[in-house]
Amino acid sequence: MDQTGLRFYKSSFLLPGLLVLLAIILFPLVFTIRVSLSGWDAISPGLNWAGVRNYVIVFGDRRFWEAMLRLSGMAIGTVLVQYVLGFALALLVWREVLFRRFFRVLFLIPMMTTPVVMSVIWRTIFHESLGPANDFLGLFGLGPYPWLTSANWAVAAVMLVEIWQWTPFMFLLLLAGLLSLPREPFLAAAIDGAGPIRTFLNVTFPMLAPVSIGALIIRLIEASKIMETVYVLTSGGPGTATETAGYYIYIRGLRDFEIGYAAALSITYLVVMIVLMTVIAKLLVRVLVGRSA
């Protein structure tokens, strides 16, 4: 709709929000790029010029790239588990189930809770002798396990908390998608005599492909920021076993105060993320839509 006399109104709707966001975001971004080209640290704070030296160091920083790899593994792993579980849960309370509205509320609760606060609670749960995790597994004759003090178990603990926290988000988006599906294709499948598994593979899953792609991408973006859970549960440890890229940047920047270097890490991280997300988005579209087409 392009109309006479609209110019003033057009700008009045868009500009306040756009300008506020630009003002709040643009400065940090440009500033970070500038800082990344400086040698700003605890000894010589300030914007001197260091050229691309920081980036050269980033390139050879094993600890950073290992953290990136670890982060990618954890993000993709947890998001896939969240997707499968979320989908299953959404299917479970989609139709004729007693108290389904009660269970829907219940299933949503974890995503409403503050991740960092829940991580503090999880830390008490994973306590080796005083926490209920080992107590519960002991009922089945398992454990006790060194949840937060051995590398593999610590990774498992972080992933478990992420799954607890964010499966509801997948559940929410997929259930919303399920509830908006038209009835006709299901009737058609029923008339064709399709069983529940075939109906799911031929009707439900393909029709939820767009929602699935959106949900997976949103969750991957959010999961790429995993950091608070790590901060509270393990502080990246033991050693660097649970250190994610974000947490490593945090250590270099805000704990060791190597601002210039942390900025270079941040920009590298951002660029890698944008490239990866674009590639993953394209792949997802091909896998999920291509299959159903």
Partner: peptide
Amino acid sequence: DIVFFFISQRIMPPIVLAIPFFLM
């Protein structure tokens, strides 16, 4: 493009913004 600019803010890792926010 404008819509994408808005939404793309969610890709920004908090740590990228934290130091400049602090200084700002």
